[in-house]
Amino acid sequence: MPNVLQAPAATDTAHLLELAKDVLDIEARAVDALKARLGKEFLAAHAAVRALEGTNGRVVVMGMGKSGHIASKIAATLASTGTPAFFVHPAEASHGDLGMITKDDVVIAISYSGESGEILAILPLLKRRGATIIAMTGRARSTLAREADVHLDVAVEKEACPLELAPTASTTATLALGDALAMALLDSKGFRSEDFAQHHPGGALGRKLLVHVSDIMRKGDQLPINKPDDSLAAAILEMSAKGIGMTAIVDPGMKLIGIFTDGDLRRVLEKHDSIKTLRVGDVMTKNPRTIAPEKLAAEAAQVLEKQSLGGRLVAVDPEGRLVGALTFHDLLAEGII
C-alpha cells in the first residue's frame, strides 16, 4: 500500500505548480476581459446600478449550484455595505419562498447558461409580480438574458478547469462583477465607515469601528492631574498612584497645558543633581498631542503607533479642557490593537 504522506516526485510537483499557475492566469484574464467589456456595456452597468439604488424594496439574489454560492456571497456583500439584500434558492422559491419577493424588489438572477430550469420556471411569475430583473449570464442570447430588464454579460473565454467542466473562471468573473456593483452602490449612496460599523458590531472589526475614545479612556479619580506649581515630588506621587506613567498638567480651569511622563522624569534626573526645588510646570512637556473623546479608539491607536508618546494619549474637549487619558495597554485590552 503506498504511503500517502510520501513527498511527490519533482515532476509531479512541477506539473501541479504549473496547473495552479494556469488556473490563476485564466481567472485573471477572465476578470480583465470583464473589465474591458464593462466599459463597452456601460449603459447596462449604469442601468443595473440605478435599478439597485432606486428600489423601494430589497435586492433578491438567486442562482443554482455554484452560481447559487456566488449569489449568496453577493447578497451578503450588498447587505453589509448598505443595500438590504438576501439570497433565495430558485428551487425553494417554487415551493413557497416566492412569497419573499415583492413588486418593489430587484432580483439579480445568476445563470451562466441563462437556461437554468429552476430560474426560468419562476421568471414569468417574477415579471408578472412587477419585480425588476437583472440577469448575469454568459450568453447574451439566452432566455434569461432576453427576458431580463437588464443583462450583464459575464462570459469567459474558457473555464480554468482542465476538463472545461467545473465553473471556475465564470464564477470568479461573476463574483467580481457582484463586488463591483456593491462598491458602486456604496459610493453612490455615500456609505461611510460609520455606516459600515452599524452592520458589523461583532468581532474585532466591530470594536475598531464602534468603540470611541470616550468609551475606554480613564477619567475621574483614575486620571492623574497636577497643577504647574506642584512640586516635582508631588507629580511623581500622582503618577505612581494612578499607574499610567504620566500626569496631566492643567490650569485652574482644567485646561491642559502640558504632561509629565516617566520619560520626562528620566531626562530631569540626568540633568539635575537635586529635584527638591523643581516645579512640574518647569520640566513638563508643553503642548502635547491630544485627541477628542468622540474620535474612534482606532484613531487613537494610529496616533500612538506613529508618535513617540510613550504609549499614552490625553483627551480634551473643544475648549482644550482635560477630560481623559488612555494608554496603549487600554487599547490592547479592548482588542483595538
Rank of each mutant, 00 (worst) to 15 (best):
P2M: 05
V4L: 15
Q6S: 14
P8Q: 09
T11K: 10
T11N: 15
T11C: 10
T13P: 02
A14M: 11
H15C: 12
A28L: 06
R29C: 13
R29T: 03
A30I: 10
A30N: 00
L34K: 03
K35N: 08
A45G: 11
A45S: 10
H46A: 15
H46F: 13
A47V: 08
A48Q: 10
A48K: 08
G57A: 13
V59K: 10
G63C: 09
G65Q: 01
K66P: 06
I74G: 02
A75Q: 13
T77F: 05
P84T: 03
F86E: 07
F87R: 02
V88Y: 01
H89P: 00
H89E: 07
P90Y: 09
S94L: 15
L98D: 06
G99F: 09
G99N: 09
G99S: 06
M100H: 05
I101R: 01
K103V: 07
D104P: 02
A109V: 09
G114I: 10
L120K: 04
A121Y: 14
A121Q: 15
L125A: 13
K127R: 15
K127N: 07
R129H: 08
I133M: 00
M136L: 14
S142M: 08
S142G: 04
R146E: 14
L152D: 05
A155M: 12
E159G: 02
P162D: 07
A166N: 09
A169I: 11
T174G: 04
L177R: 00
G178P: 03
D179G: 09
M183Q: 06
A184W: 00
A184D: 02
L186Q: 02
K189F: 05
K189Q: 14
K189E: 09
F196H: 10
A197Q: 01
Q198T: 09
H199F: 15
H200M: 02
H200Q: 01
H200V: 11
P201T: 00
P201G: 02
P201H: 02
G202K: 11
G203P: 11
K208E: 08
L209Y: 05
L210R: 06
V211P: 04
V211R: 03
H212G: 06
K219V: 01
K219I: 05
G220W: 14
L223K: 03
I225R: 15
I225S: 01
P228N: 03
D230N: 15
L232W: 07
A234Q: 12
A234E: 06
E238V: 03
M239D: 01
S240L: 11
S240P: 03
S240M: 10
K242N: 06
K242L: 07
I244R: 13
M246G: 00
M254Y: 14
I257D: 01
I257V: 13
G258K: 01
D262W: 05
D262P: 07
G263L: 07
L265I: 11
L269N: 06
I275Y: 08
K276M: 11
K276H: 14
R279G: 11
M284N: 04
R289G: 05
R289Y: 10
A292T: 08
A292W: 08
E294F: 15
A297S: 11
Q302T: 13
G310T: 04
D317L: 08
E319M: 04
R321V: 02
R321W: 00
L326Q: 06
L326T: 03
T327N: 04
F328S: 01
A333I: 14
E334G: 08
G335H: 02
I336S: 05
I337R: 14
I337E: 07
